[in-house]
Write a protein that binds this DNA or RNA. Structure first.
Lengths: 247, 247
DNA sequence: CAGTGGTCTAGACCACACA
DNA sequence: GTGTGGTCTAGACCACTGC
């Protein structure tokens, strides 16, 4: 059975697998296929879309490369779901002196809903009178507070956040966004600068005033590329560093 | 390396395309296929290796993804060659305030051959009595010196370097390594920290003593993963920043 | 025009997970 | 054993490049 929605001729040529992929991405984005759920087999999908198994396969493989799917021989194809480990592995880049990855503990210092600053509004593509969750937290590695972080996320996207001030966070923010609000962080851009420690860093990181700190400004986006979150992290790099692999 | 306790029911299983790929990577690594040269067609390669076109195709596609090859419909498949633009695009991450990529001008301050320091020897996997080219240079963006950089590369790999002290560099180092010595930089690891400006940075970057600077330590490797070069860059991030895209 | 890589199909068999 | 994804083949046709 041939789906007339799938155009084949030359004008505006677009490969079949790209069209199939678009349809499947849409099913994930709209929640029709939820994170962690099992997809139909390649053969079923091929029948449904009216293409060959090889064509569906190419679409699925690209989506796996993009980390939208997880495929396991003998088991099936699943919609990728953030866990604490996967979220940290892809988005947390701090390592210790030996280059080993370190898992941080996060402690919330403040959590308020307020209007976006001009910088936040510009980065998130929202109006400056729109509301955001404004979170201030420290992240500890080896029991030592090494990062002071300010997070802003529009309440229009993430209505509520179960954060307890003063407590270690049970879940990573990206896990919460996905599990509780159906918003999946798929990519991000980071801008890194060196800055001098100010009063908040002196207080919460225990560094001297004007100590050089690594400032990371990150805009995190969903799978369509729409901005979801802005965070600015100031890191004490005396015992830890930011690691980037260029491939 | 293979533990017999963990040997799998079908020992030594390795996909055909992976074996074909290994043979082709070897031809590039040994210089049998040189950067910029045209490969035989998929059909020819399939006949030569005694496999189907689809199998060769899968090997070629993986190598293209890894940027070892460049493929052009209607023209053919070529061995990837660094140009100033591609080298900078993949390895130079500094952007201006608007997030636009900037091309630097490099000016050599010193170039000597000396014994490796202990740190250099460890990073490059060479003996501490081995010789390296030790290069000190500034990199300018918009006419302003923003990076002071120390490069170390073993003379065992790169015998000679045509650098003129005080002059802007005509070619990127990675282009020289590949064109003149057959050494292709394929990947790198970078470690970023914030540090305080010392006397050399005060002199060459025109910053105040103890100004926070972004320090980037990079180990660059060839396509087999062997370390080729160590460079430590100290960057004034007042008007420029390091950009990283997480996908 | 001929030759290249890119897409698509159909079918066979293999490796793997799980009941 | 059954069903899944992974590999491999053979062949057709399409889009693109350059002579």
């Amino acid at each position: 059975m041939m789906d007339p929605e799938l155009a084949r001729p030359t004008p505006g040529f677009r490969p079949l697998y790209a069209q199939v992929r678009e349809l499947m991405v849409e099913r994930i984005a709209t929640g029709q296929w939820k994170p962690g759920s099992l997809l139909p087999s390649e053969q079923r999908l091929a029948e449904e879309f009216g293409v060959s198994q090889g064509t569906v396969r190419k679409a699925l493989s690209e989506m796996e490369t993009q980390r939208l799917l997880v495929r396991r021989q003998g088991r099936g194809t699943f919609v990728a779901a953030h866990s604490r480990q996967t979220a940290l592995f892809h988005f947390f880049r701090m390592v210790d002196h030996d280059g080993r990855r370190q898992e941080p503990v996060s402690r919330v210092l403040e959590h308020r809903v307020r209007r976006a600053t001009r910088e936040q509004a510009a980065a998130l593509g929202i109006d400056s009178y729109a509301h955001v969750h404004a979170i201030l937290r420290t992240r500890l590695i080896g029991g030592r507070p090494v990062i002071l972080e300010r997070v802003a996320v529009p309440t229009a996207l993430i209505t509520s956040l179960p954060l307890e001030v003063g407590q270690p966070m049970a879940d990573e923010l990206y896990v919460i966004y996905q599990r509780d609000h159906g918003v999946t962080i798929a990519k991000a851009e980071e801008t890194l600068r060196a800055v001098a420690a100010q009063a908040p860093e002196v207080e919460h990181l225990g560094v001297a005033l004007h100590t050089p700190l690594l400032e990371i400004t990150r805009v995190a986006r969903d799978m369509q590329g729409a901005p979801v979150e802005l965070r600015v992290s100031r890191c004490d790099t005396a015992h830890t560093a930011y690691r980037n692999e260029i491939v």
